[in-house]
C-alpha cells in the first residue's frame, strides 16, 4: 500500500479480564487502509481479545487504541461498529432475530439508514451470501455454515471500511471456503481493510500479505507472511502447523536434499523438485 493511511493503531496496549493476569501484553500495531492481515496463534493466545479492542467491545486496561485517527475511549460502540464490522467465530453469539431478513435489517435500522437503502442492501447481502431462499426462515433453523454466512451478510450489509473475520473457515467445507476467499477478493477490490483471525494456515497462504503471530498475549512476529510461515522456530513457538509445502521442503532439507528452506508456494516447490529430479 503506497498510501499509508493508518486505520488502526495500538500503543502499549495491555488488557486483563477483571484483576487477573494480562492476556494482552504491550501490543503495538499499525494497520494501514486496504491491508489484508492474518492474526495467527493457538486458541487462547489472545487473538479475539485483541480484535475486540478494534470496535470498542473491550477497552484497554493500559495503553491506547486509535481507530481512524480517533482514540476509542472517545468513541461509542455504535459509532465504532459503523466503521469496524466483526464477524465472530460462533454465529450463535451474534444472531437473535426472528427471520434472516430481520437479522440483516437490524444493524442498519439502528444506524438510522433510509428505508429504501436498507431494502436494497438486504437484497444485495442475501444474494452475495446465497441466502435468498431462507429470507423468511428463523436463523436457528439454518445449518451452522449457513448461520455463519448470515453473520457475514449482516456485517457486510452496512458496508464497514474495516472487516474483522474471526475464524471464518472453521467448520466450513471446501466450497464454502472458496466462497469466503472470493468474498475477500471482492472486498479487497473495494479497498476494504481485512483482518482475519485464524489458524487455518493453508487458507491464508495465498490470501493475505501480512501476518501477525500472537503467543501468550504478545506479538512475536509482525511482517511479511513468508517470514512467519516458513520459519520453523516461530511456527513451533506459536503452536501452529506450517503450510504443507513448507513442511515438505524442510523435511527434504533435513534429509540432505539441497533446496531453499523458505519455500511457501506450490509452484516454488514444484520448480525445485523438478530441478533436483532433472540434475
Amino acid at each position: 500500500m503506497k498510501n499509508n493511511e493508518v486505520v488502526i493503531e495500538t500503543r502499549n496496549l495491555y488488557y486483563a479480564y477483571e484483576d487477573e493476569k494480562y492476556v494482552l501484553k504491550n501490543i503495538n500495531l499499525r494497520i494501514n487502509k486496504g491491508e489484508i492481515i492474518a492474526i495467527l496463534g493457538e486458541n487462547g493466545a489472545g487473538k479475539t481479545t485483541l480484535v475486540k479492542h478494534f470496535n470498542g467491545l473491550l477497552k484497554p486496561t493500559k495503553g491506547e487504541v486509535f481507530v481512524l485517527g480517533k482514540n476509542v475511549k472517545d468513541m461509542s460502540v455504535a459509532e465504532l461498529s459503523k466503521h469496524v464490522g466483526i464477524v465472530f467465530q460462533n454465529p450463535d453469539h451474534q444472531l437473535f432475530s426472528e427471520t434472516v431478513e430481520k437479522e440483516i435489517e437490524f444493524a442498519m435500522v439502528n444506524f438510522g439508514f433510509e428505508k429504501h437503502y436498507i431494502e436494497e442492501r438486504i437484497e444485495w447481502a442475501l444474494k452475495l451470501m446465497g441466502l435468498e431462499k431462507y429470507r423468511n426462515r428463523s436463523p436457528y433453523t439454518l445449518s451452522i455454515g449457513e448461520r455463519k454466512r448470515l453473520t457475514l451478510a449482516t456485517v457486510l450489509s452496512y458496508d464497514p471500511d474495516i472487516l474483522i473475520l474471526d475464524e471464518p473457515t472453521a467448520g466450513q467445507d471446501f466450497l464454502q471456503k472458496e466462497k469466503i476467499a472470493e468474498l475477500m477478493n471482492l472486498l479487497k477490490h473495494r479497498k476494504k481493510t481485512i483482518i482475519i483471525v485464524t489458524h487455518d494456515i493453508e487458507f491464508i497462504v495465498n490470501r493475505v500479505e501480512r501476518v501477525i503471530l500472537l503467543v501468550g498475549g504478545k506479538i512475536i512476529y509482525d511482517g511479511d507472511k513468508r517470514g512467519a510461515l516458513t520459519n520453523y522456530k516461530l511456527m513451533k513457538e506459536a503452536r501452529l502447523l506450517p503450510p504443507q509445502v513448507s513442511q515438505i521442503s524442510w523435511i527434504l532439507y533435513n534429509l540432505g536434499v539441497k533446496l531453499p528452506k523458505d519455500i511457501l508456494y506450490t509452484e516454488e516447490l514444484l520448480r525445485e523438485l523438478l530441478r533436483i529430479y532433472k540434475s
Binding site: 471446501f174 503450510p243 506450490t266 516447490l269 523438485l273 523438478l274
Partner: peptide
C-alpha cells in the same frame, strides 16, 4: 468436491511432469 490436500496436489503435478512417486503420499513426511 472436497478439496485435496497440498501433498496430493503436488503428487499429481509431479506425475503430470513424468515424475512418478510409486504411491500416493498422504502427509508431507
Amino acid at each position: 468436491i472436497v478439496g485435496i490436500p497440498k501433498v496430493v496436489e503436488i503428487y499429481k503435478r509431479l506425475v503430470s511432469e513424468k515424475v512418478s512417486l510409486n504411491t500416493i503420499p498422504l502427509s508431507p513426511e
